[in-house]
């Protein structure tokens, strides 16, 4: 909406638009929050996989040290 259009609106109309926009914003925020929570619940359902991931930490260390040394060599 252009600013020229806005200046032609009455204060009552402006307030109405603000309230409507606020409602839409609240709905969008609630939807976003709900999606985030749904994703979290979904991932918690796969907790077994994360338990397994947590056990392979020595291979992580090896990979990390290789990366550090390759980073040092590049310099």
């Amino acid at each position: 909406m252009e600013s020229d259009d806005l200046s032609s609106l009455s204060e009552k109309k402006l307030k109405k638009l603000i309230n409507e926009t606020q409602d839409v914003l609240d709905q969008l925020k609630a939807e976003l929050k709900q999606r985030k929570l749904d994703r979290q619940h979904h991932e918690i359902d796969h907790m077994e996989d994360y338990f397994e991931d947590a056990e392979h930490n020595l291979s992580n260390l090896r990979l990390f040290i290789q990366k550090v040394f390759s980073e040092i060599r590049k310099r």
Binding site: D53, N57, N60, F64, K67
Partner: peptide
Amino acid sequence: TNTIVSLGHI
């Protein structure tokens, strides 16, 4: 332990 786990995301 969890620091080493985080290294997996390197």
